[in-house]
Write a protein that binds this DNA or RNA. Structure first.
Lengths: 125, 125
DNA sequence: TATTACGTTTACGTCAACGTAAACTAATTG
DNA sequence: CAATTAGTTTACGTTGACGTAAACGTAATA
């Protein structure tokens, strides 16, 4: 595992544009180090990016992603903060369970659609 | 189960605006009957809407939703069409499995974040 | 009969998440 | 040394998915 990454390395690895990566920085989701004016990404930065993209695949907005990702960060020792976090976690869990339900239903539908298709193909052949 | 629905009934049932429902019609996802110029939705229309919203919760674009929903429709007896459909189904399945994976990982992360929070609360109390 | 509730069309506005182009720098390579 | 290659900033443009306002029709209700 490399100790650092360039912006183009990350863009290739995750198949996104450099524009997107810079955009995530623009809105405060990433804060890579700089060598001169060139961005240098640490493994931790890479992990953050990974989390952002995972969130995206689940339809989570970048704004919401920020909150979730920040949960994993330490130093949130404020008591009210913690309670808010637990609350946010519960909300996310609810949404995810809903998604799970949606997915299983959709997969079932897809299976049916497929067998229907295969049947039709048989008839047609 | 009612034989028909008004636009406001559907908007209340699914907690969306009437604007959204009309928008789905604008882009050809719905095609309700009319009584005079008033829209009248059948149970089948309602099901379509349900599918659209389920797709939305999974981050599926309206455009992609149209394709998926059309899979469930009959009358696609063209052979090439069927092969394309099976292909599309497989693609969807792949994406959904990826989402499943993402969700289980996120749920794990959330669990960890939560126990961390609870621990921190204990220490703080 | 006026107003309230519910429906309609048309059309411009908005917001997130980038795309795209311009104009520049800095390092490597033929 | 000229030309790629990879990076940068600035800033306007675009797309999807609606929001919002205007201007209007129709039917029930106070």
């Amino acid at each position: 595992m490399p100790l650092e990454y360039s912006i183009s390395q990350l863009s290739k690895e995750f198949d996104i544009t450099t524009r997107s990566i810079r955009h995530y920085e623009d809105i405060g989701l990433l804060a890579p180090a700089r060598r001169g004016q060139t961005r240098v990404y640490s493994p931790a930065d890479r992990t953050r990016l990974k989390l952002i993209l995972r969130g995206k695949r689940l339809g989570i907005s970048l704004e919401d992603s920020r909150e979730i990702i920040d949960m994993y960060e330490p130093g949130k020792t404020n008591l009210d903060q913690l309670k808010k976090l637990i609350d946010a976690i519960q909300q996310q869990r609810t949404k995810l369970n809903q998604q799970l339900d949606d997915i299983t239903k959709l997969l079932k539908d897809l299976n049916k659609a497929e067998t229907d298709c295969v049947e039709a193909l048989k008839d047609n052949h």
